[in-house]
Simulated scan of single mutants.
Amino acid sequence: MHNEVLVIGATGKTGRRVADRLKARGVPVREATRRSAIPFDWEDPDTWGEALSDIDAAYVAYSPDLAVPSAQGVIRDFVAAAEKAGLRRIVLLSERNEARAQACEKLLMESSLEWTILRPSWFMQNFSEGGFLDSVMSGEVSAPDSGAPEPWVDLEDVADVAVAALLEDGHKGEIYEITGPELLTWPQAVARIAKASGLDVRYRTITPAKFESTLVEAGFPAQDASFVASLVAEILDGKNASTADGLQRAIGRSPRNFAEFARDAQARGCWT
Rank of each mutant, 00 (worst) to 15 (best):
M1A: 14
E4M: 05
I8K: 02
G12D: 12
R17D: 08
A19D: 03
A19R: 02
D20C: 14
A24Q: 09
R25D: 10
V27I: 00
P28C: 05
A32Y: 01
R34D: 07
R34I: 02
A37I: 00
F40L: 01
F40K: 00
E50L: 03
I55F: 00
D56V: 07
D56Y: 02
D56H: 09
Y59C: 07
A61Q: 01
A61T: 04
P64T: 14
D65W: 14
D65K: 15
D65P: 08
A67T: 13
A67R: 10
V68H: 12
S70M: 13
S70Q: 10
A71G: 00
A71F: 03
I75T: 06
I75D: 01
I75Y: 04
R76N: 10
D77I: 06
D77V: 12
F78M: 04
F78E: 00
V79K: 00
A80L: 11
A81D: 03
A81Y: 09
L87E: 06
R89P: 04
R89F: 02
I90R: 01
L92T: 01
L92P: 01
L92A: 14
L92R: 02
E95G: 13
A99V: 12
Q102I: 07
C104R: 00
L108Q: 01
M109E: 14
E114R: 03
T116L: 08
L118P: 05
R119D: 08
R119C: 08
P120F: 04
W122K: 13
F123T: 05
S128I: 12
S128A: 11
S128W: 05
G131F: 08
L133Q: 10
L133E: 06
G139L: 11
G139W: 05
E140H: 06
E140P: 09
E140L: 13
V141A: 06
A143C: 11
D145G: 08
A148E: 10
W152K: 03
L155C: 12
A159I: 05
V163H: 03
A164G: 07
A165P: 05
A165W: 00
L166H: 00
L167T: 07
L167R: 01
E168W: 03
E168K: 06
D169L: 12
G170D: 11
H171T: 07
I175H: 05
T179R: 07
T179F: 05
T185C: 00
W186N: 13
P187I: 11
A189F: 09
A191W: 04
I193Q: 02
A194S: 15
G198Q: 12
V201P: 02
Y203K: 05
Y203R: 12
T205I: 15
T205L: 11
I206E: 12
T207S: 14
P208T: 09
P208M: 13
P208G: 03
K210R: 09
L215C: 10
V216A: 05
A218E: 14
F220T: 10
A222T: 13
Q223P: 08
Q223A: 15
A225H: 09
V228E: 08
V228I: 15
S230K: 15
L231F: 15
E234S: 15
E234M: 12
E234F: 10
D237A: 06
D237I: 11
T243L: 04
D245P: 01
D245R: 03
L247E: 06
A250W: 02
I251H: 03
R253P: 11
A259E: 15
F261N: 05
D264N: 08
Q266Y: 13
G269T: 05
G269C: 07
C270T: 08
C270G: 12
W271V: 13
T272H: 13
